[in-house]
Design a protein around this nucleic acid. Sequence first.
DNA 1: GATGAATGAGGATTCATTCAT
DNA 2: AATGAATGAATCCTCATTCAT
Lengths: 198, 198, 198, 198
Amino acid sequence: MTSPATHLPAKQQLKQDAILKAALTLFTQRGFHGTAVPDVAKLADVGTGTIYRYFDSKEALVNSVFQRAKTLLRDTLRVDSFDVSLPPRDLFHLFWQRLVQFADSYPLEFRFLELQDHAPYLDDISRQIELQVLLPVWQFCLDARKKGTARHMEPGALMALIWGAFVGLRKAAYTGYLTLDVEVMEKAEEACWAMFTG
Amino acid sequence: MTSPATHLPAKQQLKQDAILKAALTLFTQRGFHGTAVPDVAKLADVGTGTIYRYFDSKEALVNSVFQRAKTLLRDTLRVDSFDVSLPPRDLFHLFWQRLVQFADSYPLEFRFLELQDHAPYLDDISRQIELQVLLPVWQFCLDARKKGTARHMEPGALMALIWGAFVGLRKAAYTGYLTLDVEVMEKAEEACWAMFTG
Amino acid sequence: MTSPATHLPAKQQLKQDAILKAALTLFTQRGFHGTAVPDVAKLADVGTGTIYRYFDSKEALVNSVFQRAKTLLRDTLRVDSFDVSLPPRDLFHLFWQRLVQFADSYPLEFRFLELQDHAPYLDDISRQIELQVLLPVWQFCLDARKKGTARHMEPGALMALIWGAFVGLRKAAYTGYLTLDVEVMEKAEEACWAMFTG
Amino acid sequence: MTSPATHLPAKQQLKQDAILKAALTLFTQRGFHGTAVPDVAKLADVGTGTIYRYFDSKEALVNSVFQRAKTLLRDTLRVDSFDVSLPPRDLFHLFWQRLVQFADSYPLEFRFLELQDHAPYLDDISRQIELQVLLPVWQFCLDARKKGTARHMEPGALMALIWGAFVGLRKAAYTGYLTLDVEVMEKAEEACWAMFTG
DNA sequence: GATGAATGAGGATTCATTCAT
DNA sequence: AATGAATGAATCCTCATTCAT
């Protein structure tokens, strides 16, 4: 078993979820190598061995955590369901809103995904899911540029700038350098829109 | 000895530098917890024990690496030496130029500083130096806003957005999603300027 | 329950047999400590817990396997039923024939019994059954010596030599150093007879 | 380092020897899988980690133990240095004598080599050294058969019978079924000679 | 009765740190 | 001052055994 089985009896599903949640919490706080498997077990309130019934190894566990978080991000953004006939500014607002929603609703997932370098241990499936998140956003930027809405630059770069700006904002908040109230978030959206549009 | 001695005979200075360079390399590649001290010693071509003559512990070592990189960043940016009488766009260009210069000249330092979450093991001195880098930039943003040049938002937030955008750009390049040629960098600067100015 | 119940309903008997067979197979291949109980269960196509309904522990299981194999050996040799009035050479041939028959018909049992050192975990019953196999052979050797047929040496030593020679032959075959065709086996019997007789 | 380095400073040589000796003792008593590495360390009076400075893994350790024992056996037998012009019976006596000498002088090595099935974890070097022991003996049997001294059967089979007989004798003694005094050993030699010669 | 999920003690192995040389 | 061999606590992982279903 490399990734967790998709369908399990309710009780086991709960246990698997508890493990994934505990792992997410600790990996986010201390990083992958800084987290001991027994600590995950303790936080999940299961035996150490139980973790190895659900995941082949610590690496398989972190990949599952990663995949779950990325999938959640993808399903929160739902960029591919955007109604492209809407005004560009509205579309951008929708995108920004959902990004905020994700970071607010799933702060652990957001920090885990964006504040750490997972490259060294990601497996093929994880990398694939990462692309599933990026591609629709890339497409969105490309479309906007074709319509003359977006700044005339490579869509990937534009995407990286805006995503990075958003991450930078949250990172500063986590570190305690900043408080993100409604006003700041609105101004930030405007600033990013300014970056996005020509 | 908590931090490395500031003045050492030339020979020892070389050894300390070799250790710090090796540590930077490995910490950047594998993270703090993913790096073994003997591996640092091997790469630095010194005995394992030697590392403990220069640094109290692995944590002290990573803090030294952090402090050196941050200091280098501060000294490359030299924001506090900005001639505030220059036109705002020129000042921004200078800032951007130096940021690019740092990321280009010291890619390991940049990746180490920006792509990992060091919070769990940073000591007081490291946190202080971090502020030494941020404060002038913050001041720069504040001044610009007072003069009506910068977007009317909290300077810290503006700073976080621009810094984050820049980091996002480099991160995408490291991951292989992007190639940063001169044109892309120019467009990116314009985009960030658009974010910065009202 | 220390040893497996002697009389069981047919269905349970089948299950117990399957477990003992699987255990014999894996213990022979990987040794006692090298074999995991869940692996035995998988091979026997029963639940892990089921093994513990039939056997108190892994040690109890290996003792049951041992006892079954030794009993089978005893019942195949049936040395105590030898007609001592027959010519000594014929008796030896009978003995040899049955030994060959056992090793051919029950290769797993033979390898399990002869190629591993079980001493560390054998219980009293197992040691007792081991004696039940040895004693008649010892008696046979003793009788032969009394009649002047066997070499004039301690019966136990003679027995050990012949048994060891036979085991050595099979071991060489298992390792792949040798092929045991009819001719080799006949020559081997003659050689052992030469050792046995004066 | 797969096998232990051949030349080490005296102090380290002692440590390596202590580890190999302790490993030999415990592997012989409890088998490979039945022996815990920390137990070997305790018996060798070194730290657990020290074992891993000298041997890559537990498997590498058992292979080193095996190779040392086999080499010792080879060097004790020295069959390839036999003066083939001597009378066959004298040659056989020499062979027997040296076999006895090995089993007497190195009882742990003998038991380790002959009473356990090492096949599952032997590496290429180990298998090669095993052949280095067997080949000269096989040659010796072949020569004797050519000269009409040895029984007319495959040399490998003859070798297996005699070697097996000897092992059987010692095994019986270890188990406590037998005491091997000078007389028994002389008779045993005669019996094996009878097996060897036509 | 049968199961197999759950457990945690115990196993192999690593690594931060020490210290004799 | 510099070394790297030595250490054992801590790591990842396994597996004999239990017990709720």
